[in-house]
Design a protein around this nucleic acid. Structure first.
Lengths: 173, 173
DNA sequence: GGTGAAAGAGGAAAGCG
DNA sequence: CGCTTTCCTCTTTCACC
């Protein structure tokens, strides 16, 4: 299920274009890739079925939603056993401030990306939702000054044409 | 430009629905929110113009693209001056392995999210693109066991209805 | 600002090279 | 497997409330 999928140059070209603009129509896509629109439709449907394309996500500006401060929380959960970490992850995911959660190697088991209104809001979040919990042994908070998205995700060995690095960089707080 | 935007309940409802399925049609959106499709069109256009909605992104499965291993690299860039960190960030963003870059507070200045084929590929990346650089003082590598996306991003104080936590969690490597 | 209908465009499925 | 055509649904606009 998680194995690599055979992709020909047309598939790769489609993925490059769609990662630049996921709302591109099949007509525009066809024009850029050099095949017929219905072929693009077929290819994209196959990429969806094979699991390469998982879905479409809306990119929002957290600052415009009153969450102008973002941070990464490194969290140690002790003891690090399934009975504790399962509920921990689900509780964190349900927080309105949470954006994503990583389970990592290293001394800090989890990394939580959060978006809050301001430093006071962050302090409240850390104190009320993390350090007050018995299973949370340690929390280290780092503010995010700025974030950049990178170029399109492609298989190893695929030459990425220049200028395909996504323009978006979050403005500094 | 980065200030908070006034959003009424209809806007919030639209944002919730679109974060669940960014490809929802205006008809479906209208049916769920309880207004006319043309009204949804207006609202979404305003959300785009005001910068709340930045764009649409394709969600891909890195494993299906032959990048079954993901990691976070904590990088110290010394000396931490604009002449060095600007080119550093741009070079990292141009790497085909890079997914996103964070400039952070704390002893490690940058966090780089990468997707690679395997451990050997990761070793090559760290040695050839990071530690071999003079401005890179230190690199700490942590593997990502699993990653979860969280619920919709909404303004503080907005009650998030249950079941809106995104289902997607990356399968463990 | 929201609605409803009309015009225009895009997407999905058929049959053919 | 890809192209062309057709049909149908959706998007988008505009006058009206």
């Amino acid at each position: 299920m998680a194995e690599s999928v055979a992709l020909d140059p047309v598939d790769l070209h489609i993925l490059r274009v769609l990662q630049n603009d996921a709302r591109s129509t099949y007509r525009e896509l066809a024009a850029q890739v050099g095949v017929a629109p219905s072929t693009c439709l077929d290819r994209v449907a196959r990429l969806r079925r094979s699991g390469v394309i998982l879905g479409h996500r809306l990119r929002l500006d957290p600052a415009k939603l009153g969450r102008g401060l973002q941070a990464l929380l490194s969290v140690q959960v002790r003891p690090h056993r399934r009975e504790l970490v399962g509920p921990f992850v689900e509780r964190v995911r349900a927080l309105p401030e949470a954006r994503s959660v990583f389970h990592l190697t290293g001394p800090d088991d989890y990394l939580v990306h959060v978006a809050v209104a301001d430093a006071a809001d962050l302090q409240r979040l850390v104190l009320d939702e993390f350090t007050s919990r018995r299973e949370v042994a340690r929390v280290e908070t780092r503010l995010i000054f700025q974030q950049w998205e990178c170029g399109p995700l492609l298989p190893p060995g695929t030459p990425a044409p220049p200028g395909t690095t996504a323009p978006g960089g979050t403005a500094p707080a």
